[in-house]
């Protein structure tokens, strides 16, 4: 993650405790692993409440994969409470008999399909999916064995990706660069895109 941001020219550092957030303009919640242990680790390091405050203040936040799932109210995985900065639930893929995909975890490249019709390919590794309350936040969806789920969310200054932009080739790099340079900061987006 650090390598990927460095590759797009961002000044990036790892925050191991609340002091590490001092002076930062943007916050990234990466993550691979289990929701329960990730949430406990954030709490143990004293980063849980600062992350919530960060979002409440409307500051730019990027959640990736598990980091995106933790932004919701709660996760079915380990019955873990989330940060609650995006309304919704992180759900396990349904079983095959309930219309779910055959291969779980979803590992590999898949289409990230924007509502506008534009597509890009992202690299995914996950067993749970983002189910936000506000569907207006859904920028893109992805389909796996006929099961469609949101794969890119944006609301205010918050961006959440189910795929891993740091492993998603040029598309992922462009997304990281957009976040690092403030293009995903929220209201300024339209002006920045026009500039």
């Amino acid at each position: 993650m650090l390598r990927a941001f460095a590759a797009v020219g961002a000044d990036v550092r790892l925050a191991r405790h609340p002091d590490g957030l001092r002076g930062a303009e943007r916050l990234v919640l990466p993550g691979v692993g289990a929701a329960g242990s990730a949430a406990r680790e954030l709490q143990r390091r004293g980063l849980w409440q600062p992350a919530r405050d960060w979002a409440a203040e409307g500051k730019p936040l990027l959640g990736i994969c598990l980091g995106a799932q933790l932004l919701l109210d709660r996760s079915d995985e380990d019955e873990t409470p989330g940060l609650g900065v995006i309304g919704g639930v992180c759900r396990r893929f349904p079983s095959v008999s309930d219309g779910g995909p055959r291969m779980v975890p979803h590992i590999g490249w898949n289409a990230v399909e924007m509502m506008s019709g534009v597509q890009a390919d992202g690299y995914f590794v996950h067993s749970y999916w983002l189910d936000p309350v506000d569907h207006a936040a859904v920028v893109a969806t992805t389909e796996l064995d006929g099961f469609r789920f949101p794969s890119l969310l944006r609301t205010g200054a918050i961006t959440a990706t189910q795929f891993h932009p740091e492993k998603s080739g040029g598309f992922g790099r462009a997304l990281l660069a957009a976040f690092a340079t403030g293009l995903l900061d929220g209201r300024s987006v339209v002006a920045a895109a026009k500039a």
Binding site: A136, V139, R154, F171, A174, A178, T181, V189, A193
Partner: peptide, 16 residues
């Protein structure tokens, strides 16, 4: 697909 990567500005223009 070997599509050209979008520019960061294009990514930012994608909205829900």
């Amino acid at each position: 697909r070997p599509l050209p990567a979008p520019r960061p500005e294009e990514v930012a223009a994608w909205r829900g």
